[in-house]
Design a protein around this nucleic acid. Structure first.
Lengths: 138, 138
DNA sequence: AATAGCCATGCAACGGAAGTGCATTTATTT
DNA sequence: AAATAAATGCACTTCCGTTGCATGGCTATT
């Protein structure tokens, strides 16, 4: 818990009790989580607070947002040293059509893409869809 | 207009007046359009009808859906011969942060990606974000 | 230690977009 | 022309994201 406090402070996020708990929750997840997920995990806390917590986390580079095509935004912890830079930090995501989970493929960075003249890319969202390792076994 | 009728019939979509008009509208666009866009273009038609038109178009491979991260689903005409197959038909998309338009980069197919053991990809959504050619000039 | 001010939290409400059930109209088939 | 099927229109719901405002707690400054 001390550790979490340090991480948040390093990211210039004031380590309130709530924020530390949310961070801890993120650490226990291996799939990306939505606001609703967090909400269910913290019955007592208000939706808005959690919403803003996620927003602050995203702005300060604690988590990154993933748009997996389900219509619900998901979030996952950034890797240590991540700066959310295209081609350096940004990685692929995988959404499983069966279990509906979205996971980070942190080993798979986004390959360089030659864009047409005039296009300047600064961010990217890459989601592959199909069956994940757990679901394809069955 | 005759041509549109043929295209729809080839895709096994019954060419009603409404559907042909919507298809025509799509042809006149160079950016991806949302349901709201179509709605505004056809004041007289009901939202639900347009909604279901887009749904049928998507199911029958007339258009493909793009999730550009704005929270609003967008649609664009499929290329001739498109089967919406990964690595053959699927291409990149670009969302401009300034003009808020999303365009297809049909020349840029999705590169092959080696997934971890057990993952089976069947679909993909790739969106690059930044400034488009029109907006980066200024 | 008291006070002022800032930031986080909680409550209520709004708005956009997607989606569904059912009635009605239009088209197709026999 | 009747029977069937498909498309359209209307009303309503739900989900998610978001914002405004009031309250509470921590910090800093004196």
């Amino acid at each position: 818990m001390e550790e979490i406090e340090n991480i948040l402070e390093n990211k210039l996020v004031r380590p309130t009790a709530m924020r530390m708990l949310v961070y801890q929750y993120f650490m226990g997840q291996d799939a990306a989580v939505s606001l609703t997920h967090v909400e269910n995990a913290f019955d007592k806390a208000d939706r808005t607070t959690l919403y803003r917590t996620l927003k602050v986390f995203e702005e300060k580079g604690v988590v990154h947002q993933i748009d997996d095509g389900t219509g619900t935004k998901k979030y996952a912890l950034c890797e240590p040293g991540c700066n959310c830079e295209l081609e350096q930090d940004l990685h692929l995501h995988f959404h499983c059509a069966r279990c509906n989970e979205t996971v980070c493929l942190t080993e798979h960075k986004i390959p360089h893409i030659n864009l047409p003249e005039g296009f300047v890319a600064e961010d990217a969202n890459v989601v592959l869809k199909g069956l994940c390792d757990k679901c394809s076994e069955k």
